[in-house]
């Protein structure tokens, strides 16, 4: 087993242990212990608005599949989709879902059906619709524009894997005077989101949707585990700088050469 493989296993096992540990000790998770993220507050707010106004939310899951690193962003989007469907089950109109990837489209429909069944949405007409809008970034963006411009859509939630084409979606929401909550794992798109979306999700905030939307304590435990690892990484970086400054970096170069 290579050093990289060993490091990977250690990291995963540690993460697993921390998540289980925090989920056990936090029997009564208190969301007030996590820092506020305005975008998720906005999602909750917009769900309430859609319930009162009789409007619907638009959730776009991007064009990321499940077979690459972008799958995490897509799965995070699916988690948010599930929570939004549960919270907006009393809406007159269910959320409308658009995807740019075939696999995510299937998973989105599966999530929709499973969640609707779980919350006993008897009226199948009230089930949210999940559709594949386009298989390329721009065809996806162009197809999503028609949904954003729907007068009955009160807010747009873009969570998943997007490229620079997301600026179309955010500016279209702005022109419709509807709030736009957007988050993606792609860095150039994050810059675009920061400049154009009303409520951006930056960096790992995208993956914290479940914790902020009440998906369960395992999501809160995930955040706690991430924080632990974040501090570990910070200490490792600072320690590496210190060792480099002191000239004791040969050992780590050897490790890196072996792992990478």
């Amino acid at each position: 087993m290579s050093a990289t493989g060993f490091t990977g296993i250690v990291v995963i096992v540690l993460f697993l242990g921390l998540m289980i540990f925090f989920s056990i000790i936090n029997q009564e998770p208190k969301q007030k212990n996590i820092r506020p993220i305005p975008a998720y507050d906005k999602i909750n707010q917009e769900i309430n608005v859609s319930v009162e106004d009789g409007t619907q939310l638009h959730i776009s899951l991007g064009r990321g599949g499940i077979t690459g690193p972008e799958s995490a962003a897509a799965l995070a989007g699916l988690s948010i989709l599930k929570q939004v469907i549960e919270k907006s089950s009393v809406c007159d109109y269910p959320p409308v879902v658009s995807t740019g990837n075939a696999v995510i489209s299937i998973l989105a429909q599966d999530t929709i059906q499973g969640t609707s069944k779980a919350i006993s949405v008897a009226d199948k007409g009230k089930n949210p619709s999940g559709e594949l809008v386009g298989v390329t970034p721009f065809s996806y963006a162009a197809g999503t524009l028609t949904t954003i411009r729907d007068k009955n859509v009160s807010a747009n939630i873009h969570t998943g894997w997007f490229g620079s084409e997301i600026t179309w979606l955010t500016t279209a929401g702005e022109r419709q005077s509807t709030p736009t909550i957007a988050g993606t794992a792609q860095l150039p798109a994050q810059a675009v989101i920061y400049a154009s979306a009303s409520d951006p999700l930056i960096g790992e905030e995208l993956y914290a949707g479940g914790a902020y939307l009440g998906a369960g304590k395992i999501h809160l435990a995930s955040i706690s585990a991430q924080d632990i690892f974040r501090w570990i990484i910070i200490f490792i970086i600072l320690g590496s700088v210190l060792l480099k400054f002191l000239g004791i970096d040969t050992f780590f170069e050897y490790i890196l050469a072996g792992s990478m």
Binding site: D110, S222, Q226
Partner: peptide, 24 residues
């Protein structure tokens, strides 16, 4: 790094079965 940490936790949740995007 933050995205990587989020990716790991998302994957672990899937492997634990707490997140099931493949339906219930």
């Amino acid at each position: 790094i933050g995205i990587a940490l989020g990716t790991i936790t998302t994957g672990i949740r899937i492997l634990m079965g707490t997140d099931r995007p493949y339906g219930d």
